[in-house]
Amino acid sequence: MRAAVAVAQSATDPIAGLVVQDVPEPEVPEGWVKVRVRAASLNPHDLWTLRGVGHPAERIPMILGCDGVGELDGRRVLLHGVIGDPDAGGGDETLDPRREILSEIHPGTFAEYIAVPRRNVVDLPDGLSFDEAACLPVAWGTAYRMLTTRAGVSAGQAVLVQGASGGVSAASIWIAKALGARVYATARTPEKRAYALAMGADAAFETGARLPERVDVVVDTVGEATWSHSLRALRPGGTVVLCGATTGGSPDPELQRVFYLQLKIVGSTMCTLDELKGLLALIDEKGPLPEELIDRVVPLEEIRDGFEALASGEHLGKIVVRLPLASEMDAVAGFAAARAGTSLAG
């Protein structure tokens, strides 16, 4: 089968270590299933692996990809990317000390087939396409957990989303709006602020700008560059929920503001299987998803183009990778051969 594999790591030229090549189909342990992947999407985690960040060199080569959707026994299925034991995490697999996500220890979704635990397969609602669904588990699942389980957002509250063009941030805008919140967003450029509005924000502002009101919840994936603004934007008793810090950790946490206004700082990582199902139910109720969800779609053989767009940071929306069926690949090859005036036979 064909797969996109990290064969080397480099902090300065990460994409040089990405190769699309033939690999054996996965073995299927007891309790696992083999899914025919139809679409997947890129995440910063994939780029970090190629850069050698958080992924030991001894686990290279590795098939990349954390998100995926495909077919199993005639069913359209979505893959829950967190592999963990809910019992070890007190009912929450994200709290299992040994939990992992696809492409860390077990091969990822940028392949024609993938083996996953049977519990990690979720039936896909009819209203979602393969391309749309491939965008959901990591970014949208993370955002759903942040807003519901961790921050407890409810209808009528005000939410600020920092760095609104990022995958988790864009998802947070749509989800918070679907939950009935007033949603404000910040972004550095007019294009990214327009994107935030297209994703459902009530208003979008330059980073650090004064808001119309203080908010109940801030979603911050940025870190140092927005940290002071996040705290200053909160009402007394408000909550900042964090899942990352793309600009680094804050050297000035403004601790006096935190204790004087009784602010809550909450961390969050990924989502549980139940939360992923909750996200699908919310989308089924409040959808459809906006067209702006997807920036571009690339075939597996051109996945390097997708990684270059991801590394540039200038894309708006998710980058989807399609993995066609063998019959579709044959049709494409036949069309290309016909255009070249040759036959498949020779």
Rank of each mutant, 00 (worst) to 15 (best):
G223T: 03
G248E: 14
P212L: 04
S230W: 12
C243P: 11
V266F: 02
V222R: 01
G223W: 04
T226N: 14
L234M: 15
G267K: 03
V240N: 11
G244C: 09
V217D: 01
L261T: 02
T247V: 04
C271S: 13
G237L: 10
S268D: 03
V266M: 14
C243G: 11
L231H: 15
G223S: 07
S230R: 08
V266Y: 05
Y260N: 09
P236H: 12
S230L: 03
T221I: 08
G244L: 11
G249Q: 04
P251Y: 12
L231F: 12
T207G: 03
V258G: 10
G244A: 12
W227N: 01
L261Q: 12
E213L: 04
G208Q: 03
A245G: 05
V222H: 01
C243N: 15
R214C: 05
H229M: 09
A209I: 04
S228A: 15
I265G: 01
S228K: 15
T239D: 11
G267Y: 06
K264I: 01
G249D: 06
S228V: 15
T207W: 01
L263K: 13
I265S: 10
P251H: 06
R232V: 13
S250N: 08
T269L: 07
G238S: 11
V219R: 00
G237Y: 10
G267W: 02
G237C: 08
S228I: 15
H229V: 05
P212G: 04
L261K: 03
G267Q: 03
V215T: 06
G223C: 11
G223M: 05
G237E: 13
A209L: 01
A225R: 12
P253D: 08
T246P: 08
V217K: 00
F259L: 14
T226V: 13
R232N: 14
S268Q: 07
E213F: 04
A245H: 11
V219H: 00
A209Y: 08
G244M: 14
R257G: 03
V240W: 00
Q256C: 02
S228L: 15
D216H: 12
F259W: 13
R257S: 11
P251M: 10
V241T: 06
T246N: 08
Y260V: 12
P253T: 09
S250M: 05
G237A: 09
T207P: 02
G208K: 04
G208A: 09
R232M: 12
K264M: 09
A225Q: 15
Y260K: 02
L261C: 05
L255R: 10
T269M: 02
S268I: 08
V266W: 03
T272V: 04
A209D: 14
T272N: 00
D252K: 02
V217I: 14
L263W: 08
L263Q: 06
C271Q: 03
L234E: 07
E254Y: 03
Q262T: 02
Q262V: 05
S250C: 05
T239A: 08
E254S: 03
